[in-house]
């Protein structure tokens, strides 16, 4: 959505793990937000990952996707990276087409008749070499 989008996925963002892969992401807002204010959509080589297959890690803690809304005390600092983990094996050294939609619901900017948090949505689409 803005200039800070360029920091979301760095060149080393995609990494093979024992059971699959992980994607390391940084925020596109200027201040820390907790996981409760975030939502994700991930496509790898055009295929969308079922959200229920996503594990979310921050500060060394691990959560299921359906826990996100409750995580208002798990903060992701602006210079730290969160991790999405997926149990789907990929190959180290190979290039993958990654489309990552990173939604932030800004908790101090309320908009519309219902005064809901402003949605700041960014999509990063790039080829990443699996580390």
């Amino acid at each position: 959505m803005g200039p800070l989008d360029k920091y979301i996925l760095k060149d080393d963002a995609l990494e093979a793990t024992e059971n699959g892969f992980q994607l390391k992401f940084q925020t596109h807002w200027y201040r820390a937000l907790p996981l409760s204010c975030m939502d994700f959509n991930l496509k790898i080589d055009g295929k969308e990952i079922d959200k229920n297959d996503l594990k979310i890690k921050a500060n060394g803690n691990e959560y299921r996707y359906d826990e996100l809304l409750e995580l208002d005390k798990e903060w992701l600092f602006v210079l730290d990276r969160g991790i999405l983990e997926v149990e789907q094996p990929i190959e180290k050294g190979k290039t993958y087409d990654i489309e990552f939609k990173y939604d932030l619901y800004i908790p101090y900017i309320l908009v519309g008749p219902q005064a809901n948090p402003l949605l700041a949505s960014s999509v990063v689409h790039k080829n990443l070499i699996c580390q």
């Binding site: 907790p34 204010c37 908790p107 101090y108």
Partner: peptide, 12 residues
Amino acid sequence: ANIDVGIKRHAK
């Protein structure tokens, strides 16, 4: 400070 009244998204 930030006054994050919408931090839980579904409830203020």
